[in-house]
Design a protein around this nucleic acid. Structure first.
Lengths: 258, 258
DNA sequence: ATACTTTAAATGTCTATACCAATTCTAAAG
DNA sequence: CTTTAGAATTGGTATAGACATTTAAAGTAT
């Protein structure tokens, strides 16, 4: 019996995360529709309880990487290539999952006066400065998106990190900020002439624009990002459960706590 | 001790669903940021194990309705108003949540030869027929989107329903199909001249295009829909949890199952 | 008042087990 | 050969605990 995680000596490898990583490997090399090991098999292989194996599989299901059918099994999702839902991925992580090599071309990175949108998103007062980072984002060497990041001024230390090959979020974690939650929205617009040139597109091409606000571990908005993807090269996937038939008719509720 | 769900006599009310409904009530009437009962309190109130209470709360977290902070507690999410995440909304339901009155102008609705995309999405053989419904979707009387729906031929009875004022999904449920799951994706493209005219836009305006495949209760794909929104009038919101810290460096993997 | 320590509370991880529900496979019966 | 009944498999729900980790509050000493 080994209640808790017991080990402690190792840095942090949680059991279900190990299992997740292992399954991700299988998914990456496997074919859509292919059956994955059952919960019982996973539990036996890793010498964990079935509930722990289950947690790993459910996490992958939440990400849309696998489909599950009761009685039948767990299968690699139909189109696990372009997936994305439930989990916010940084550009780097998003590309890695799609099997592409992410990189960046730094356009600029310095302190600037915050725009009204920056101030609104980050909750700043009227005359404020923010760290603005502009990058061209590449996948396997092909320009895919233009990114403009506005960070709180106290994050200036990230400018010392390698933002061409490394991940911005990794850099933020290194200096003590833990990106944890985000709200965002998607819209479409036309590329300006300069934008089209940077992305190697015909002028007035459509862009798929993702805007998002990211908070740190304390619920403070630290990052406001606009990423403009070349629409002909990028698709955002959503995997959803259909709206419930009813919002749950309710009766005989237990006593509400204080 | 009451392993399993025990009751059986009632139709189906699962414990964690009851708890979910109860919490939804609290969330609906409460303020953002407000603390919700802890897992232990919920478990005590409903006389269930903590893991069962936990499942309910985790489901709500998956929908972005609550935020959780380890050591602190569970709280009503910051902006539970503009949601659209985790739950697939039909155009009608989506508009209602945004406080707009949805309506439609029927363009056509008849049996047609399936395109290759229709066949691919619905899993049909080469020469096949599908029911194609084309509508202009309005919000408060303003044209917002163009919709093309391809349905399995055996759904032809929906053509008798009122598709200008009523919901297509409601019609499908009436004739015995229960839309339950969907995968979809978002992309952007330019409007054709005809499309721009129908949406009252300048030609070559950008469109935000949502494509989705919907399955019935048996996992059969029954609907393939493309909805092209006027990008200047429509935004898709997403609410997400941040990606896990690492993609998990991996070593010493257990033996892979057959 | 400020800074530190202790303590309680809350979520996170994990175990080991049980039964239910749906699916799939297999073997017996027709 | 087909059908059918049953067994085995697989995911879904649920229990009752244990320990870990983080946070916030209360208390204490400076």
């Amino acid at each position: 019996m080994r209640a808790g995680q017991g080990k402690g000596s190792e840095k942090s490898a949680l059991r279900y995360q190990e299992i997740e990583a292992w399954l991700r490997e299988i998914i990456l090399t496997g074919r859509p529709g292919q059956a994955l090991p059952s919960e019982v098999e996973i539990a036996a292989n890793f010498d964990v309880s079935r509930m722990t194996a289950r947690q790993a599989v459910l996490n992958l299901m939440r990400e849309g990487l696998v489909d599950r059918r009761r009685g039948a099994g767990t299968f690699i999702a139909k189109n696990p290539l372009h997936r994305r839902e439930g989990v916010l991925l940084s550009f780097s992580e998003d590309m890695k999952r799609r099997g592409l090599k992410p990189s960046s071309i730094m356009v600029s990175g310095k302190k600037e006066i915050a725009t009204s949108e920056d101030r609104n998103a980050l909750g700043l007062k009227d005359p404020s400065s923010v760290i603005v980072i502009k990058r061209i984002r590449l996948a396997d060497g092909t320009p895919l998106a233009l990114e403009r990041v506005a960070l709180l001024a106290q994050c200036f230390a990230v400018l010392d990190e390698d933002l061409e090959n490394g991940s911005l979020h990794a850099g933020l974690r290194k200096i003590g900020f833990q990106p944890t939650l985000a709200s965002g929205w998607l819209k479409a617009r036309l590329a300006t002439t300069q934008e089209a040139r940077k992305l190697d597109l015909p002028s007035k091409s459509p862009l798929l624009v993702e805007t998002r606000v990211i908070e740190d571990q304390n619920g403070v908005a630290i990052e406001y990002t606009e990423t403009a993807y070349a629409a002909n090269r990028y698709v955002v996937d959503i995997k959803l459960n259909c709206a419930p038939a009813v919002i749950a008719p309710f009766s005989a509720a237990p006593i509400a706590p204080a």
